[in-house]
Design a protein around this nucleic acid. Structure first.
Lengths: 184, 184
DNA sequence: ACAAACTGACCGTCTGGACGGTATAAAGCT
DNA sequence: AGCTTTATACCGTCCAGACGGTCAGTTTGT
């Protein structure tokens, strides 16, 4: 009678609701219906709505970090490793990324305090990036561009076409590669 | 018994509420209280809550476009004018920018359909940028970086310190200036 | 006097969450 | 092996507060 995967199910259902109906409709009951359980069940797993949203954020952040570290391991050990792997991860958006977006929107809409979870994590990651041996201005530029891309996609505001997107990424990859080690 | 400046007052009050209490608390009653009128008064000017949010968006977009065009007029007539002036505008965030952010958040939280207003405008502006004579990849990069900056500021997620910020802007200004016309 | 500007009481609906109950399975007891 | 206890997983009902919006009426300017 163990059910840790039920948790995952509910999280996924929540994300589904948000991306189909919008955050305004992220209600405990709709999440329950989407997952095929009762509202009571949702509250059994997440004692409060905020807890649900927090979990959406948390699981996304964990996933994203792991994904990043995996790509990082494959990157040659030259300055800019962390930046290049982060760019690689950002190129291929996953369903998990949508969950992150949904979680962020839900957080903003319900209790901005929840954003604290993201704030501390991103600040940590930013510190890692700045130990990467690349000019801090370039580092910041890359981070901003990635965020901008996520932002456009999230709200559907003039999201760039695939080709333009990959060209920008390529340009940034180049900026994150030190001159002395370039092979191409 | 004049109307138009009362409208502005209400819009400003709405923005105040959002930035102080969060979008979740953007309620007709709170806006009314903030502006020192009754809820009925708010509904007298904006027949619906969506209309209020729409107006927040609209006034911001109008203001932003005008600001941009003013800076553009001061820019030397070389390729990249539009980009450089846009960057200049984005350097010095105004209270109006916050209203734009508040409006966007409110739109997302209440009725994502409202984002359509932004979508069409930004798409238009993007078209203008691409007639600016600068490599489309650079153009996109600059737009993304600006959006990323707005995004970080809006949610308070690792907003870069002032100095780093102006260095990135300077870097981008440089990218938006054709080689042949550089004077510095 | 007449319209525009504004009020405040009221209503219907929605939603988070509390709560008491139920089914199921495992553990303990004999 | 049979019976009781207990903890887990979940259901369905109910409620109190909040919020958008309506409306009949009142004030204010001209």
């Amino acid at each position: 009678m163990r059910k840790p995967e039920k948790l995952e199910e509910l999280l996924s259902a929540a994300h589904q609701v948000v991306s189909r109906d919008g955050i305004a409709r992220l209600t405990l009951e709709l999440v329950a219906r989407e997952a095929g359980v009762s509202k009571g069940a949702v509250l059994y797993y997440f004692s409060t709505k905020n807890a649900l949203i927090g979990a959406m954020l948390q699981t996304y952040l964990d996933w994203h970090f792991i994904e990043w570290q995996e790509k990082l391991a494959q990157e040659p050990e030259t300055p800019g490793r962390a930046l290049r792997s982060l760019l690689t991860v950002s190129t291929c958006p996953d369903e998990m990324d949508q969950r992150g977006g949904a979680g962020m929107l839900a957080a903003v809409a319900n209790d901005p305090e929840l954003l604290q979870i993201i704030r501390t994590r991103v600040t940590e990651w930013d510190a890692l990036l700045h130990k990467d041996g690349i000019d801090p201005t370039i580092t910041l530029l890359i981070r901003l561009a990635i965020d901008g891309l996520k932002f456009c996609d999230l709200l559907g505001i003039a999201p760039p076409p695939q080709e333009a997107r990959s060209q920008v990424i390529a340009f940034l990859q180049n900026l994150a590669t030190p001159e002395t080690t370039k092979t191409e």
